[in-house]
Write a protein that binds this DNA or RNA. Sequence first.
DNA 1: TACTTTTGTTAACACTGTTAGCTAAATTGA
DNA 2: TCAATTTAGCTAACAGTGTTAACAAAAGTA
Lengths: 201, 201
Amino acid sequence: MGIAERKIRQKEEFRASILEAAWLQVLSDGWQSLSIRKIADAIEYSIPVIYNHFENKEAILLEFTKEGFQKLADALQEVKNKYDDPAAQLEAIAHAYWDFAFDHKEYYQLMFGLGIPACDRVNQIGEMKHMATIMISTIQDTIALSSNKDVDYFLKYHTYLSILHGLVSIQMIQKEGRPDDNKKLILQDAISGFITALTAG
Amino acid sequence: MGIAERKIRQKEEFRASILEAAWLQVLSDGWQSLSIRKIADAIEYSIPVIYNHFENKEAILLEFTKEGFQKLADALQEVKNKYDDPAAQLEAIAHAYWDFAFDHKEYYQLMFGLGIPACDRVNQIGEMKHMATIMISTIQDTIALSSNKDVDYFLKYHTYLSILHGLVSIQMIQKEGRPDDNKKLILQDAISGFITALTAG
DNA sequence: TACTTTTGTTAACACTGTTAGCTAAATTGA
DNA sequence: TCAATTTAGCTAACAGTGTTAACAAAAGTA
């Protein structure tokens, strides 16, 4: 009897249609405005049926998060295969990572919990410039003392801030609470590398 | 007549009490659960009075965002003053930045829009390991070809991912839409520095 | 005291995620 | 084929959210 099989198939299709409707929602209006009600409306079913296929809203988001990491890993593997030299691979992977993040912004934002609250307005905040000024002036001073003075200080500032923000947010995502003090080795490693490159020119 | 002055003073105090109540809320339950209703309840006033002092909820969050950047800038300036050598300043600032982020987690999360949706569960996602494996194996290959083979590959992996994530999220915060292609210079700069440090040992 | 402005209130609107309880359809066993 | 049972889907509600319109009361002004 193929009835059970058909039921499973239908359930699968239903599930897929929920995800598809959700994805269209996300593409047109972003994560913030995704709602169970809108999904139910799109698939022309009542709200509770969605809870037969997903435990809650977060489970739907989790599905896309997994999908996102899957796609990212695939993309990285693909470019890695194009090179034999590991250093060249590292560079290619970095570019692929970058491309993925901006080509699939919705995924990336969900995957790393980014751009959710006041991100649209964070660049309108004058207070950020203060912090930037301190960093930039210090970088300019460092360059002035280095062997190569043609270094783009603004570029270096972005690199510097990015490394810091990256270290922090990665650490924050991975662990609850304050990280072990020996995790500062990572900070030390990244920053000393940055400074060496900067002072060498 | 000091009536006008008193009124201004009272308004200021009212505003401060709203922010204080909001901050206590945030400290005990996080940004997600902060609500106008709870603030109103805490200050023992009705809901709409809050809208006499803040245009909306985001305006309250913006206040804390500004406060956060102010505190961060102060902290950075303070440690900068302790050193004369710019390179040493850069290092000290990096540490101060790190300390701030984890000593004032609530601020930092708001400032950079972090940890909002599924961040608690992002480390439970198996798919992330796949991505990590690809990166780590490549880093191990690079180390194997380098002059110093005692490098901690796991530390390097964290550094590598952090730089990438930092670059991306910083860029994402600052600009709407895909960034100029010449912004890839920042990526190039950071990654080539990382790779140089890695291959040199 | 009469008038005007400010301040604060209640009550509602339009949303959100989630669930209890019922109805109607589909499937199963006799 | 018919009754029993399982399942699917529905309506309606609960408990929240941000926000605002309309009104009452208090405070300040002439």
